[in-house]
Design a protein around this nucleic acid. Sequence first.
DNA 1: AATATTCCCAACCGCCCGTGA
DNA 2: GTCACGGGCGGTTGGGAATAT
Length: 214
Amino acid sequence: MGRSPCCDKGSVKRGPWSPEEDAVLRSFVQRFSNAGNWLTLPHKAGLNRCGKSCRLRWLNYLRPSLRHGGFTKEEDNLILSLYGEIGSKWSVIAARLPSRTGNDVKNQSTGTPSSRRGTCSSQREQQRHLLLPATTASPPPTAPPWLMVNLFLLLRSSILTQPLQRSTTAESSRTSRSSCTPSSWGSSSSSSPRPALARLQTGRPCCRNRHHRQ
DNA sequence: AATATTCCCAACCGCCCGTGA
DNA sequence: GTCACGGGCGGTTGGGAATAT
């Protein structure tokens, strides 16, 4: 049946939020205890923003007691465990993690080296590697983290139907990216899971279009 | 030093669901 | 029962920084 858009995208501001806008939104929501109707909030608060954008900003960034980044190993393990049980229900997973949002969990799961790639070629990557902390004094595990993750998921669920097959070289990574489009992982191919699952299953990200913009 | 590549994460998009008229 | 609406959610995109070559 189709739906009318929640706001006029041509007349509202989009993109990054300014500190002033954050302050207005924060004070408005806190002053009234809750936001009430998100779609009318921008008008009431004097913000030239889409209501859904306001809601997202509040829930994912401005909400008190939120923590950003710095996922602990325990949190990472819990995410992996819950993902194995329930799949990409990020909001459900986030509900089990205090001070985390679904968006955070999603970004963590689909964006951390520990869940994406089999190799840690850079210092930055190693330092951020949740399953292989940079502070560890022990030698690296025999099996790479991505394999451990996949084995874990294999044991926890029957998601995996395809054998693990990939190389960890940058070359194969580029090749994979260039051939990975939404249509390539769509319904036409049962062996091409959707990106989030594909990343966890293969330990590598699917394509990110920005890499093609240059 | 310059350029290319990779990554993080905030923000957006669009669909689904629950609810009330 | 149907429809419109708002909220919620998963998936995707893009900017900018860090790192590698």
